[in-house]
Design a protein around this nucleic acid. Structure first.
Length: 200
DNA sequence: GCGTCGATGGCA
DNA sequence: GCCATCGACGCG
């Protein structure tokens, strides 16, 4: 066994540099990582199994394509921060800011598997936020802190596949881009699973 | 099992 | 007037 765990005081969490890369690279790298949310004396943990990359201002499905606004400001900031927004009047969406400051890219977290025997349905971005208590109050939160953060994958490497993103039919040619990633062996992936999913 | 539809509010 | 959604409903 690796003895470093006994030496280091607390388990490693992902650092700023991990997030400082293009969303198309970060999105698959996040599959298998452990999301931790410490809130009101409790700790919610879940293993990420589905993500989507939103790759910048030229991406017509990316909120940043409308330019810098009050809502999208966080995406234009440095990587490793939470971008949380309200959709359809009732669901919050949790995104992780990627790439360098000024380059508005982000990764949407779409699904996860609850850990520690926690029974929860995290198979969809709205359901995931509700169950993990992630809302607009967490918008702009630094994910390298101790309240909401990620830990490196444990165990075996995931078999990742890619498909078009969900719910972006309005975005012209961008709707065809294979920017959704998921763990092909997880049963917590949100509904449109696809038979034509491509190996990564 | 599928398609359709309404809820609901911030934003441009 | 849109939405990076979800769950309820009606079908047969």
């Amino acid at each position: 066994m690796n003895s470093s765990k006994a030496i280091v005081g607390r388990p490693a969490s992902l650092c700023r540099e991990f997030y400082a890369r293009p969303a198309i690279e970060l999105a698959p790298a996040l599959i298998g990582t452990i999301l931790v949310h410490r809130i009101r004396g409790r700790e919610y943990r879940a293993r990420l199994v589905e993500t989507e990359a939103y790759v910048g201002q030229h991406d017509l499905a990316c909120h940043a394509s409308k330019g810098r606004t009050k809502r999208t400001a966080v995406m234009f900031g440095p990587p490793g921060f939470a971008y949380v927004y309200l959709i359809y009047g009732m669901y919050d969406m949790f995104n992780i800011v990627a790439a360098a400051e000024g380059d508005a890219q982000a990764v949407l977290v779409r699904a996860a598997e609850p850990l520690d025997g926690w029974k929860a349905d995290l198979s969809g971005p709205g359901k995931l936020c509700r169950a993990l208590r992630i809302g607009r109050a967490e918008n702009g939160l630094d994910l390298t802190g101790e309240k909401l953060f990620l830990r490196p994958p444990g165990g075996e490497k995931s078999r990742i596949v890619r498909t078009p993103r969900v719910g972006v039919d309005y975005s012209g040619d961008w709707k065809h881009e294979l920017l959704r990633f998921y763990d092909a062996d997880s049963n917590a992936v949100s509904k449109p699973r696809r038979a034509d999913a491509q190996p990564i």
